[in-house]
């Protein structure tokens, strides 16, 4: 302390707060959610490990819809445009969000990626997250629903190993079911039990992009979710 005027003193001010550290991302995501709903676009956050079949699922979905629905996809890719290129080849308008070393997408990246796109006329916007069962779980992207893709080759106990992402999921897609005959160690019942320990209301669908198994149920789910989420006129395509 200065002897002359006491300058240089500081006072310790304790503050009791309740600041959620994800609130900045959540606020952006809520704004995106409002814009998606208003425009009648069903936005989905598609998550899963690398190789879980996310891109293949989108290709198969586009094929099954046969152009009756406009799909836009944003693909989070660490370093390449491979996913984006495959989706464009399947007739899906898309953009790649090159994330570099980031392990998840956030709302700001989605906002920026959408800017140059004419997305308001789309029926379905799928945000294909970075392949990762850990980090993407925490970040709201403004989606109507979170989908987690888990392939049968990853193991029946993965839900319990990654409780946060499976807790947050609205739907789990058990992919590559055509491989089950080659996986005697994978029990679908054990997977369902594992899921029930981390997801209070387990909602999951089995499927194979290869054989088409599960595609009708997946398309039904999309239609039901659109109807439940979007303003009535737009959901029926009359607005």
């Amino acid at each position: 302390m200065c002897d002359d005027c006491g300058c240089g003193d500081t006072e310790k001010v304790p503050l009791k707060l309740e600041v959620k550290l994800l609130s900045a991302n959540t606020a952006r995501a809520q704004e995106l959610r409002r814009r998606f709903t208003q425009a009648g676009v069903l936005a989905l956050d598609l998550m899963g490990s690398p190789g879980s079949g996310k891109t293949r699922l989108l290709e198969a979905t586009a094929q099954a819809l046969g152009g009756t629905r406009r799909i836009i996809a944003l693909s989070g890719d660490l370093a390449t445009d491979h996913d984006g290129a495959r989706l464009r080849a399947a007739g899906i308008v898309g953009r790649t969000i090159t994330t570099g070393t980031a392990c998840h997408l956030d709302a700001r990246q989605v906002e920026r990626a959408l800017e140059p796109l004419d997305w308001q006329g789309a029926d379905l916007l799928v945000i294909e997250n970075v392949g990762n069962l850990v980090c993407p779980a925490l970040y709201d992207l403004g989606q109507a629903a979170k989908i987690v893709a888990l392939s049968v080759t990853e193991g029946e106990d993965k839900p319990e190993k990654y409780p946060v992402i499976f807790r947050e999921a609205d739907l789990v897609l058990l992919t590559k079911t055509d491989l089950l005959p080659h996986l005697p160690g994978f029990s679908v019942e054990a997977f369902a039990r594992s899921l029930s320990r981390v997801m209070p209301t387990p909602r999951w669908l089995p499927g194979s992009a290869q054989t088409g198994e599960g595609m009708p149920a997946w398309l039904d789910w999309i239609a039901a979710t659109r109807a439940a989420t979007l303003p009535i006129g737009r959901a029926l395509g009359t607005a």
């Binding site: 500081t10 006072e11 310790k12 009791k16 707060l17 550290l21 994800l22």
Partner: peptide, 15 residues
Amino acid sequence: GDEIVLDRLVLEVPD
């Protein structure tokens, strides 16, 4: 169990 919350700060304010 899912909290990520800043709940206390002690700041030094110049007198």
